[in-house]
Design a protein around this nucleic acid. Structure first.
Lengths: 342, 342
DNA sequence: GAGCCGCGAGAGAGCGCTCTCTCATCTCTC
DNA sequence: GAGAGATGAGAGAGCGCTCTCTCGCGGCTC
């Protein structure tokens, strides 16, 4: 091996020379094409070993038009960068995506779309061929991110139903059913003065949880439910609970649209001398870490985020495999996790 | 425009034809080379607009040998995939990395290295040219991930000092100083019967926090400190606190090596009828979400994770710019956040 | 007005790989 | 033993881009 060859990273050509065969044959061996004489295969394999050859991804991508990468785009309202990544939701999604992608030797490229510019950049990133498709996690309503990808003709799958109608595949949770689970539990427990802390009005998921809860409660004979909206943070949960308690001092059941707000509510309940679940039954949503960490441990509606993320990934990979673009949407069924708070 | 041209994504060649110039000229315009006649530049720009041209990343990477991507490798003990992503630490690191990388038009590719195979895959990923360098987040001791990257000659920066000596750049926190901050606070508060919940013995950071605390406490006239080790989870914090309380019923000060364990300790303290901070002062470490969520709010040693992640990224980009491989290590100074628990 | 310099555009050779097409060799069959 | 059909290796044309080198042309000096 010349000193020149040893300073460059070896190419197919180098391996071919070392093995005394053509570039094409080495390519066949590398890609596992079976129509290669076993003896030649052995020689080539040894040459690959000896030269320390490793295929160049860019060259492959250039001819195959496949990058083996998907973009994982986290869309948030403008300037919410840090906020988003601190949300345990993000980690769970990332986990599900990575785990599923790995099995196919692929990896996600993380992109934050928290401004119009960033959203356009994300689209361009894929258009340039850096990724074969996109996984979109949209956390706010009126988000034009899904639209941008659809218009660009990029294979993409959304986490959560799009806030505005867009022809795109997605995975979602049956939020209404989840909220109904909570309502039924509260009703079973004999709660009659029930209140709820809802999420932001511009989020479809939040509205579904609210309407699902109200409807189920009505079915169970509780036609009117006081509601105050929060923004999914513990602080907003505290404030909402305080307002609710002022309005309905004898409340005996609370449904919070997510665990964080439930934790906030729990604090206020304690401060105001209510025992949980003794005086007031409390149910959260998500089954996140805080639900488990709270005392009493929170009864909550579980959302299989990792599985949903994995499924979202599966749908995308499927679309990448078959260019025939048929839309798929999968709605997951929530589950009530009964712990101590209700 | 022929129908053939409109079905392919346009290339430089197409733009050149449309503008009536050479491929090279279009390339100059696209890349902002200044030595182009303004009039020609205008014509070319219009042609780019008209054709909807977008550069092909793979082709660029092939000749430039730059992918514009870095690998963000999260290394964990085998099979700890889900666990890792649930840790709020991960999100904070991701946030810091993404934010900094974005300014240079780059993006991280997320990789999970939770097995020997996965670690090798991560190295190969970069060797193939998929990424220009790597950001390594190693969460367990004896991790050979840094070694693998160094041996492969890949530019890489580590989050946290390597457990075993490896010639690699890194960012870290002065854990000893942080623990000393906690010790001094406890001493200032007049605590004399002090105990500590340490982290896993195989983590350098955990040991630094322990020794830093012990040493500072000694300086302040408390030569002996009872210690029980946990594994950084709230549950282990509960258990450790229970043991500690059995051994030292009159303990008046507790330092937990992270917030999660402090939260666990807080629960046991309450259960056993100790008021915090009245009877027992409690200090955590990290300044994570749970510290803020606890009641009383946790006094804790803050670790500027986002800034550290950003700095780690900066160091990597710097190394990518100047191939002259000089090692850099930056140690951040912790800060005591005084809240209600101590 | 002839020669020189410098600016700016074009030509063309790769970057490392895949894949089709061609061609040589080997094994059957009758 | 000759022709047909497999089988498997090699040749070569790109994939879309960058970048060096070459060359034309305008303005300058003396």
């Amino acid at each position: 091996m010349t000193s020149e060859a040893s300073r460059r990273t070896p190419t197919l050509e180098d391996v071919a020379k070392a093995a005394g065969v053509s570039r094409a044959t080495v390519s066949r061996v590398v890609n596992g094409i079976t129509s290669v004489d076993p003896r030649i295969r052995t020689v080539v394999t040894q040459a690959i070993e000896a030269t320390g050859y490793i295929p160049n991804a860019a060259a492959r991508t250039l001819v195959n038009r496949r990058s083996g990468t998907v973009a994982l785009v986290i869309s948030g309202s403008d300037g919410s960068a840090d906020q988003i990544f601190r949300d345990p939701f993000f980690g769970r999604i990332a986990g599900g995506v990575v785990r599923h992608l790995r099995s196919g030797g692929m990896h996600p490229t993380l992109m934050l779309a928290d401004s119009d510019q960033a959203r356009r950049d994300a689209v361009d990133f894929v258009r340039r061929g850096n990724a074969d498709g996109a996984l979109l996690v949209s956390t706010h309503a009126g988000d034009l991110l899904p639209r941008l990808f659809v218009d660009a003709g990029i294979p993409a799958v959304l986490f959560a139903r799009p806030a505005v109608p867009v022809p795109i595949s997605f995975v979602d949770l049956d939020h209404e059913a989840g909220a109904a689970l909570a309502a039924d539990r509260l009703a079973d427990l004999g709660c009659r003065r029930v209140v709820t802390i809802a999420g932001p009005a511009d989020l479809p998921a939040a509205n579904d949880r609210l309407s699902g809860f109200q409807r189920a409660m009505e079915r169970r004979g509780v036609p009117y439910v006081d509601v105050v909206r929060g923004n999914f943070t513990a602080e907003s949960g505290e404030q909402a609970m305080a307002e609710l308690l002022d309005a309905v001092p004898d409340a005996d059941g609370v449904f919070a649209a997510n665990d964080l707000m439930a934790v906030g509510a729990l604090r206020v309940l304690h401060e105001r001398g209510r025992s949980v679940p003794g005086d007031v039954a409390l149910i959260g949503f998500d089954d996140s870490e805080p639900a488990l960490m709270a005392r009493p441990r929170l009864t909550t509606v579980a959302q299989p985020v990792e599985d949903m993320a994995a499924r979202m990934t599966a749908i995308l990979l499927d679309q990448l495999g078959t260019p025939a673009t048929k839309l798929t949407s999968v709605v997951f069924t929530p589950e009530l996790i009964i712990r101590e708070s209700a």
